[in-house]
Design a protein around this nucleic acid. Structure first.
Lengths: 227, 227
DNA sequence: GCTAAGTTGCACATCATTGTGCAACTTAGT
DNA sequence: ACTAAGTTGCACAATGATGTGCAACTTAGC
C-alpha cells in the first residue's frame, strides 16, 4: 500500500515540462505561475520539490540529459555533416535548449547549467576538433572557441524560431545552415551539402514535431477537476 | 545659485555605467548592488532615478543610442564589408550591447529593448537586403531572418568574449568573422576579405593604446572595458 | 470499501527588495 | 563664507515571493 502513486510521478513530469515552458518565456517565473501552468496548486509543488531552486535544477538536469542523449548516438565520418546533424537534433528540443540558454545567463544558475551541459559541449568540441584537423572545418578560429560560437549560433536560431512562428521544416533547415555557416562553409556549400546528404534534407521526427514552444497560457487558474 | 552641480550630473553617468556593468553580469542586480558599484548609497540613487525601472530604461536607451550612433556613420558599397564594419563597431561597445541582449530576454523589458534597438536593426536589415539583392550575400535565407541571425551571432561572440578574457584584437576579428560567416561567406573568403580590405584589419581605437606585443601572453590579455 | 498517497486552501512566518521621509552632514559654486 | 545641491544613514511601509503547518478532501491501488 505504500508504493508511490502512478499519477503522482506523472504529475512530477507535468511540473517539469510546465516549468520548462514557464521559464522559457520568463526565467524568473514564480512557483505560482509554474504551478498553475502545470494544473496544480502552488502548495502541491512543494510535495514534489522542496525548493524552487531544486525545481529549476531538475529542469536543468533533465534538459541537459535530453540534449546529451539526443546528441550521443550521432556520428558521421564527415565532421560537417555531424555538426549539421547536431543542429538538426537540437531543433527537436527547442524549448529545453532555450530554457537552459536563458538560465545560463542568470548569475546564480550559470555554473550549474555549465556543468550540466558539459558532456554535450565536450561532444561538440570533439567534432570541431576533428573537423579542424582533417581540414573540413575552418582553421582560423581556435576549436574550443569555434565550438561555443556554433552553439551560440544554434541558440540564436532557436530564439528566432520562437519569436516568429516558424515551420518545422524551416527551423530545421535554418538550424543546420546556421551551424554550418559558423563552421566555415560558404552558403552555397552548405546548401549543396544539405541537399546532397541523405538524412539532412528533412526533419525525421518520429515522435512529436514541436511547433513553437509554449502554446497554452493566459487563461490559466483553472485546475483539472476530472472525475 | 540653483544650477545643477557638476559632480551630480557626472554621478548620473557613473550610475548608468555601473548599472550597465551590474546588469551585465546579473540582469536582476539590485539597486543596492548597482549603487555600491557606482560608489553611492542606495538612497542617493533615488535622487537621480525615481524607480528601478526608469534606471534600467535609461541604461537601455543610452545603450541603444550609443549603438545607433556607432552604426549610423558606417557605409560601404560592398554589403559584406559594411556588415563586417558593423560587427567591428559593435565590438567596441561590448558591455552595452550585452546588457541589452540580456535584458531583451526578460519578459517585462522585452518590448522596450526591441523598440530602442529598432533603428539599429532597421539599418542592418537594409544592408542585408541590399547584399541579397546584388548577390554579395546569401540568398537562401529571408533577409529579415538573416539580419536577426547575424545579430544573434554577433552577440554570441560578445558573450564568448566576456566569458573568456579575450584580447581586443581577437574579439575584433572574431566579431567580423562571425558576422561574415553567418552572412554566407566561406571562412577563406571571410579571411581574405578582412585581410584585403583596409580598415578591417585592426580595431582602430584612437583612445586605447594598442598593446605593443610585449604584453600578450598565452593567457589572453584582457577585454576592452567600457567607461 | 479502506487507506495511504496526494491535493487543496488557508494562515502564517520569513525574507529580500523597493520606494519614502527626515535630519544631519559634506561639498560645489559663487 | 554662505547656501543650495547632493549625499548619507536610518527608520518605516509596502510588496511579492518563498516555504511550512494543518485540517479537510479526493483519488489510486489494493
Amino acid at each position: 500500500m505504500r508504493g508511490p502513486r502512478r499519477d503522482a510521478t506523472e504529475n512530477r513530469q507535468n511540473i517539469l515540462t510546465a516549468a520548462a515552458a514557464a521559464l522559457n518565456e520568463d526565467p524568473d517565473a514564480s512557483i505560482e505561475s509554474i504551478a498553475s501552468e502545470a494544473g496544480l496548486s502552488r502548495r502541491a509543488l512543494y510535495g514534489h520539490f522542496p525548493t524552487r531552486d531544486e525545481l529549476v535544477e531538475a529542469v536543468l538536469v533533465r534538459g541537459a540529459e535530453r540534449v546529451g542523449a539526443l546528441l550521443e548516438p550521432i556520428a558521421h565520418p564527415d565532421a560537417r555533416i555531424e555538426i549539421a546533424l547536431f543542429a538538426a537534433r537540437l531543433w527537436a528540443e527547442v524549448s529545453h535548449v532555450r530554457v537552459m540558454a536563458a538560465l545560463a545567463v542568470r548569475a546564480p544558475h550559470a555554473v550549474r547549467v555549465a556543468s550540466a551541459l558539459e558532456p554535450a559541449r565536450a561532444r561538440l568540441r570533439g567534432t570541431v576538433l576533428r573537423g579542424a584537423a582533417d581540414g573540413t572545418l575552418r582553421a582560423d578560429i581556435p576549436p574550443d572557441t569555434l565550438a561555443r560560437l556554433i552553439e551560440a549560433a544554434a541558440i540564436g536560431v532557436l530564439d528566432e524560431a520562437t519569436r516568429t512562428s516558424m515551420s518545422t521544416e524551416e527551423g530545421h533547415r535554418l538550424a543546420m545552415l546556421s551551424a554550418l555557416s559558423t563552421s566555415g562553409l560558404g552558403w552555397r556549400e552548405a546548401d549543396v551539402l544539405i541537399a546532397s546528404t541523405p538524412g539532412l534534407s528533412a526533419p525525421q521526427t518520429p515522435s512529436a514535431p514541436p511547433p513553437t514552444a509554449t502554446a497554452s497560457r493566459a487563461t490559466a487558474t483553472r485546475r483539472p477537476e476530472q472525475q
